[in-house]
Design a protein around this nucleic acid. Structure first.
Lengths: 359, 359
DNA sequence: CTGAAAGCGCTTACAG
DNA sequence: CTGAAAGCGCTTACAG
């Protein structure tokens, strides 16, 4: 297990020049089929692994991308990281992570660190209400279709609309929408969609968790039971995290889901399928989002040298708003008293005959 | 904004040699204080950013570490990634992510890819029951103190013991322990600790979710309500994810927590503080774990050239078993009927007077 | 204390 | 189709 073979070793072993070996390995033609094959065989035999550092130095490209999320501790991070890593890896790029710990200015520092580390481009999922300035290197922003400069995103608005329709179809006419911050484009889109669906067909009210916690402390009650008493029959959270909070608060208050009220979320986070009742939610197509983000980034990288070309899409904008997928699970059901005209399978867990049923 | 200044630019601007500039920048002495200062000033003035590729090529060190988790979609990944990124970044290293999507052999491929990308070393949080062979590059394994080759880990066993004691202190004498796989060292440690605490003081039984799902399908009921009827008063899950499942299943079954039974978890996942009731759990000190893993890795890197020195700790083994921290929240309380001799603060949510109270 | 030179492993015009 | 040469930006003995 001598130290790694390099181009020169192969060249020597075959009595050819390193230039030829290089050309053969990169497969850009310029070498006879015959010789090309021989060289590649020898390379394999010697266990040749190209040195990225050597390549990077001569091409000026590191073939590494940076991934910066507003908050690396966000429960969606795993999904993002996995999809981005996969897409990048398919395209021959590595992914370096940057963390901004939810802090706005740390976000730009994180981006800068990654650039100093030689990232050829950056994928950023920005913090609510942040805008990414020109960083002199290609960037792909994943936020919301309504965010200026956004590269690709799920169609959050339409996702909201579908959630709204789903609840309307089940007979719900009074929904409480649960959000966190009013400065998040993603959340505002989702909320806008839900409201649009309900417009003229039912009433919506809005709960901002962030605001409630500022007033009553973190982890405070959301007062959901009270809302049920006032006639709300459905809760549509803009994230599974908030849906989870709603479900447990309602359950703790003795309210049956979906017997008494329905609850929906967004994002299909890891626990959504596992809690009782399992959570109806809206899922992003992370694979496609990642693919498009990476493709855009790479096309930018391969165009401009290292240029300060303002990032933006040449690709068809329409393609960059990715549909979300409604996943109907047990937490949403027909409004109490309505004929159960649903065609959904009963599910594995017996939400059919709830044992709790008061308030 | 011309293209980036390099050592040679600084050297020319000052009429000195690049060697001197290099020495001045790396601060390894060899340069007069005077000149050193001048050079560094000029460097700053020109906005000099060292080329990692150049450095990597000449030193053979990329200053990049790889992070491989069994499953990047695991809810603990964010905590790990954040802590590792932070520790690495402090030490001047970048972090490249690798994904093995929960697949055992993909795990080694992921490791190899990172090595081909030039990672100087790898941090791996292995999949249950996997063992990392020699990969010809420094590795730090974070798994369980009882895993052979483990570098650093939380003291899962003792964490289990503390959970057990906590439940005993609350008066519980019959606990159901909820695990996923019996081939996970981490889980076995946690379970062993709980059992040790209960030995001779109460009875424990064990539920393997993985096994139940194999028999009854994913998302199946865990039959927890039945257990309560049989006299179980506490559920100790080896992960917050399973605790969450337990809490919702119990609540859905009309059982009050902590009124009727207590539930505890592990890991303090993102939602633990936010559900109702909030979840009592055991938290790892990720910052310390990450620090130690990174320190170990770097010391290995700086010792052997690229050697096949079998990884292992020279550092004091004792230091590498990091205590966990018990976080008492509302999901655990005194056993029903017992005098409430607890000193815990009542918490923000009124678990004091539960409205649900049947079965 | 400072500098000239070689070399890390690759790619890329440019010749032949 | 193939090769000799220069260069990417740095570091590191080795001289002076």
């Amino acid at each position: 297990m001598a130290s790694r073979a390099n181009l020169s070793d192969i060249a020597k072993a075959l009595g050819v020049s390193v230039a030829t070996v290089s050309n053969a390995m990169s497969g850009k033609g310029r070498v006879s089929q015959e010789l090309g094959r021989t060289i590649r065989e020898k390379a394999k035999e010697l266990g040749y692994v190209p040195s990225l550092a050597g390549r990077a130095l001569s091409t000026g490209r590191s073939h590494v991308l940076g991934l910066v999320l507003a908050d690396i501790a966000h429960p969606l991070f795993p999904q993002f990281a996995q999809a981005i890593e996969h897409a990048a890896s398919e395209a021959g790029y590595g992914v370096l992570i940057g963390d901004s710990r939810g802090d706005v200015e740390a976000q730009s520092r994180a981006i800068n660190r990654l650039i100093e580390r030689g990232a050829d481009g950056i994928v950023v999922v920005p913090r609510h209400g942040t805008r990414i300035g020109d960083i002199g290197r290609p960037v792909a922003v994943i936020d919301s279709p309504t965010t200026p400069g956004n590269t690709v995103a799920a169609d959050h608005w339409n996702g909201g609309r579908e959630i709204g329709r789903h609840l309307l179809d089940l007979g719900h006419r009074s929904v409480a929408i649960i959000g966190l911050h009013s400065d998040s484009n993603v959340q505002n889109d989702r909320i806008g969609g839900i409201r649009e669906a309900f417009a003229g067909r039912g009433e919506t009210r809005l709960i901002w968790i962030g605001e409630m916690e500022r007033r009553h402390g973190a982890g405070c009650s959301l007062g959901l039971v009270r809302l049920v008493e006032e006639g709300v029959t459905a809760f549509a959270a803009v994230s599974d995290l908030h849906a989870l909070r709603a479900i447990t608060e309602l359950q703790q208050g003795g309210i049956s889901i979906p017997g008494d009220v329905s609850v929906t979320g967004f994002d299909d986070l890891v626990w959504a399928g596992v809690i009782a009742p399992s959570l109806t939610t809206m899922r992003m197509d992370m694979e496609r989002i990642a693919e498009i983000a990476i493709a855009d980034l790479i096309s930018q990288i391969e165009q401009d040298g290292a240029g300060a070309v303002p990032h933006g899409l040449k690709a068809s904008q329409g393609q960059n708003c990715i549909p979300m997928e409604l996943i109907i699970r047990q937490s949403s059901g027909p409004k109490l008293g309505l004929p159960a005209s649903d065609e959904r399978t009963p599910g594995l867990r017996g939400s059919a005959s709830p044992t709790v049923d008061q308030v």
